[in-house]
């Protein structure tokens, strides 16, 4: 809730700043009576904001790179609760086949796109996309641990892509099918939060409360509990009932003991947002994040500086030759 309010605040702030800058520019443009100026200002200010986003986003990628480098790899047998890095082989928990290629896998992601043509140019529009959410295991020489891939940042190379042409003559339409998957026994890297899959104490309390509520609603049973046949059930009698139900719950649990490895899971946490699953090596992942952060930071800087030069030139503070002619790009 608090996060949503903070996000809204930033959106409102950016919109306010953006609109006030446009207002200033419009005033200036009105004086000069030149539609190109408004058009130019909008582009330049917009791209400066994009540049700023790239610049800051680049630093978050750099943080991720460093985080991966700074966390040593844990052995699954001795993994501790909290943020952990694991390396091992992917193993299925239950049979799973990818949606497009029907490959045996532990995880898949697919994307179906449709080609859209506008004059000479064309672009791909997403028709459908999705990914599997089935749990799977990561196994090393010491044991195995459950992985919940929900909301993970998946870094995988493209495994399948096929372009199909539908229709005949002038009415042809192109569709693109793309798929990524992790196959069983593939080496994987996981960085995420290790946590209890369920809290035993909490779940027992819930069960107890449910049973007690049921009991309170059943008047016949309540009568039976009133051992001394007094007008009310005494505290001692109630305690005895509670203890009996507790024992019943324990008995049920013992009858169906959970698999020990299913006790904990590596997943995304509410506190630590980082959760990466990849079939690349740790070195390759850090290299990817490093490259991405450098490109974003320097790309963002160049974009900001370039747009600032054009903006200042448009405002008459720098030579006119430095103005970017945006209209030309639309012709």
């Amino acid at each position: 809730m608090k996060k949503a309010i903070t996000n809204k605040f930033w959106v409102v702030l950016v919109v306010m700043v953006f609109s006030s800058i446009i207002d200033c520019c419009l005033c200036n443009a009105a004086v000069e009576e030149d539609g190109d100026i408004i058009f130019g200002y909008i582009h330049e200010i917009g791209l400066i904001l994009v540049g700023l986003f790239m610049f800051f986003y680049g630093f978050t990628q750099y943080r991720k790179k460093r985080l991966i480098e700074n966390i040593p790899t844990s052995k699954i047998r001795a993994v501790a609760m909290g943020l952990s890095e694991l390396k091992g082989k992917a193993k299925q928990k239950s049979p799973l086949r990818s949606l497009l290629t029907h490959k045996d896998c532990v995880y898949y992601r697919f994307l179906i796109e449709k080609e859209e043509r506008r004059g000479r140019s064309s672009s791909w529009k997403t028709v459908s996309e999705g990914s599997s959410t089935d749990y799977f295991y990561i196994e090393d020489e010491t044991g195995r641990l459950l992985v919940d891939p929900l909301d993970a940042e998946i870094i995988l190379p493209l495994d399948y892509q096929y372009i199909d042409t539908i229709g005949k003559f002038l009415f042809t339409k192109r569709m693109r099918y793309t798929e990524w998957y992790i196959q069983p026994d593939e080496d994987i890297y996981v960085l995420g939060t290790v946590k209890k899959i369920k809290d035993d104490i909490l779940s027992r309390k819930k069960k107890l409360r449910k049973q007690l509520r049921k009991l309170k609603e059943d008047k016949e049973k309540l009568k039976k509990l009133n051992i001394d046949k007094s007008s009310q059930i005494s505290i001692e009698e109630w305690d005895k009932v509670e203890e009996t139900i507790k024992q019943e719950i324990f008995g049920e649990e013992l009858k169906q003991p959970p698999e020990p490895e299913d006790d904990i899971v590596i997943a995304k946490s509410d506190i630590e947002k980082i959760f990466i699953i990849s079939d690349h090596s740790e070195k390759e992942i850090t290299k990817k994040f490093g490259m991405k952060s450098v490109l974003l930071i320097f790309g963002g800087c160049c974009l900001i500086i370039g747009m600032l030069i054009s903006l200042l030139a448009r405002a008459g503070l720098l030579p006119e030759g430095l103005i970017i002619p945006w209209r030309k790009f639309y012709r």
Binding site: C301, I305, I309, L312
Partner: peptide, 22 residues
């Protein structure tokens, strides 16, 4: 004037970048 604003803009960017890096 334009050069000064541009210079200040770049300087600000460099300073922000440096602070974030540190």
């Amino acid at each position: 004037m334009g050069i000064i604003i541009l210079f200040l803009g770049i300087l600000l960017l460099v300073v922000i970048g440096l602070v974030l890096y540190l």
